[in-house]
Amino acid sequence: MNKLDTLDVLSRKILRGKLQGQRRSKRRGQSIEFADHRPYVVGDDLRFVDWNIYARLEQLFLKLFIEEQDLTVHVAIDVSGSVNYGQPDKAVFIKKIAAALSYISLVNNNRLTLTTFRQDVVSQLKYMRGRNYLSQMADLLLDAECEGVTDFENVCKQLVASQVGTGIMIVISDFMFKEGYEEAMKRLFGRGYDVYAIQALSPQEVDPELKGDLKLVDIEDADTAEVTISGALLKYYKKNLSAYCNELKDFCTRQGGHYVLAKSSDSVEHLVLNYLRRIRLLS
């Protein structure tokens, strides 16, 4: 916790907030950090005229300042059946990451919205700010049951519609959506979020330890696939998995977002303290 205390959520975009906060915002406003000059037009507040320039050039210029705003951090986690798998459990892992990031946000007075979703948004805590909300945040995470099927597109529609303001959107999921993730993600990017996609996979998914003739049952929709495990099949599986992950990464990068692949066997601490920092999600 102490280590987390030192962190703060960082957005590489300069986004607009609702309350004055500690973030730089696109809006020029009242602050002490100088941004630019512009010529005076009628109606401008004379308080911002730079009189020193007027003395030098006898022309009216306004001094523009960067307004500091608070940051909206949006953490959305997948609580469908598919995350409830693996050794160590992906669900626990995802919740831990979410908790860590939420904690950082709350401690640093960011506006935090925490969402759990599967087919729809399951529960949502909006606009939390400050340490007071920690217990509420923790309850939400602890109470979340991981089951059922996902409909990511529908979820994204709802997220966008909930108008929680732009900011950082951190989506933590395994991103194994049969109907695809592109359309859904595009909605998020289109809304102007600074999207971080954290893909959590269990070691069993990355390197399956299956043998023999199997009937594989999908944990979410009970779909089955009959396979005979062979060297070749495993090779194809791994090839497909890495291709899938790379596609997701490329997609995010292309859209201006970020992508993180996390294995549930990794330590959450390491991930949060080092890795997210390195990609400058945290500072």
Partner: peptide, 23 residues
């Protein structure tokens, strides 16, 4: 031995199906 396929649960059959297809 040949007929009895063991059932095994996976988070998502998506990749497996693709792998089988590729194969």
């Amino acid at each position: 031995l040949k007929l009895k396929r063991q059932e095994d649960v996976v988070p998502c059959t998506l990749l497996w199906k693709r792998a089988v297809q590729d194969l």
